[in-house]
């Protein structure tokens, strides 16, 4: 049971603790996609942390679409700690989706800027 090596896991105490700024900062820095894995609905230790995260994620997906990064790069799934095979499956799914979409357009723009600067002889 393996998931792709290009995935980095960031631990948080609860999906309700994830602020919109954390995800936006990651996208601004050029991350290609984010998968939020929360507890099963109704199973939140903090009662409604995962439900709040769900609403925030939907809001953020709309915002990413509006910005031009694309809503498909952000996804939330609900899993329990005992569902490792499902976790791997969900990770593989989002990795496939993102590979299909290509790199984060903000990163591509950075590369474009660098190329232009190199052509112009700017160090």
């Amino acid at each position: 049971m393996q998931y792709p090596a290009n995935v980095r896991v960031v631990h948080v105490p609860c999906t309700g603790k994830i602020a919109l700024e954390h995800i936006l900062a990651a996208f601004e820095k050029g991350i290609d996609g984010v998968l939020i894995a929360g507890c099963l609905e109704g199973g939140c230790h903090f009662i409604e942390g995962n439900l709040r995260a769900k609403r925030r994620t939907e809001h953020l997906r709309d915002m990413l679409d509006e910005i031009g990064v694309g809503r498909e790069r952000l996804r939330m799934v609900n899993l329990s700690a005992a569902m490792a095979p499902t976790f791997v499956q969900r990770v593989n799914e989002i990795v496939q989706t993102i590979e299909g979409l290509g790199p984060n357009p903000l990163k591509a723009h950075d590369a474009f800027e660098t190329t232009q600067a190199q052509k112009a002889g700017v160090p």
Binding site: L20, F27, M63, E66, L106, H109
Partner: peptide
């Protein structure tokens, strides 16, 4: 917080618009 979030959004959108 809302100022920060809007800041990220506008900055990224403007960057994409070159």
């Amino acid at each position: 917080r809302e100022v920060g979030i809007a800041g990220y959004g506008v900055r990224m959108a403007r960057k994409l618009a070159k």
